[in-house]
Amino acid sequence: MSLQVFVLLTVTGLGLAGVYFLIASGLSLIFGLMDVLNLAHGLFFTVGSYATWWVMTRFGFIDSLALRFAVAVIVAAAFGLAVGWITERFFVRRFYGDHVTQILITLGLSLSGVALIGGWFSYDPQTFPLPELFRRVVLIAGARIPVSRLLILAISVVLLAALLTFLRRTRHGLIIRAGVENREMVQAMGIDVAKSFTLVFAIGGLLAAIGGVLGAVFFAGVTPEFGLNVLVFAFIVVVIGGLGSVEGTALSAVLVGLTQQYVNFFAGAGIGDLTVVILLAATLLLRPQGLLGEVAR
């Protein structure tokens, strides 16, 4: 293969990895801390992408598309934060210790939320104008790389760094990391873990919603059901990376994103997705706890 193709595929694959990471990291933390499989996480993503579409098409009073996009990111983040908070506070919290009910509730929220968005804005794909800058290309090693790809990559890396800093440098982060390992012991140290639950859901919602913004740019449009499709790959990323490990999730997102791009390009559309699933099966057979996971659950 030519170097140009390889570079383009790599940048695209890394961009996809960024989108996967943003949705998978929250999922992984929520699961690690609370043992909750949050099926509504795809909805958080969809909320983010529709917030982008909404701002980009309805905020005509902001002339500059670049500025409008910046507003879209903030609006999406705010919506994601709110939806995550509401999900934990009013739905999941009532059923601590009852994992099946929690899963069922997030499932119901996910389906009705998607249908709500579909009912409001139709199930047809919607497109929106992007800042002119995004459509420019830069030459990297002879390959023409769209700026939007690089931007997606940059935002994902910044958010990864921010998340790791938060987890490593703040007291809330410390409590979350400790809680992922041993929730009861954190309580036994006099810390109200339930506050961290809400926080993790809100952060997860925010990250997934920004993932939705980037996903809308990456796939050049929005549809209500898209979040669920991405959620499936986020699950794969979470399991391969090791439940509860942010670093593992990042690593596995890169692995999955690149594999998918390379194989889809060289072997045909769809084969890359299949390969990723085979990767998952191999991980389960060889290392059920995931790449950086500590214990099998």
Partner: peptide, 11 residues
């Protein structure tokens, strides 16, 4: 086990 000694105490 995943936290450092210092982090365990800080918690």
């Amino acid at each position: 086990t995943q936290l450092t000694v210092e982090e365990n105490l800080r918690l």
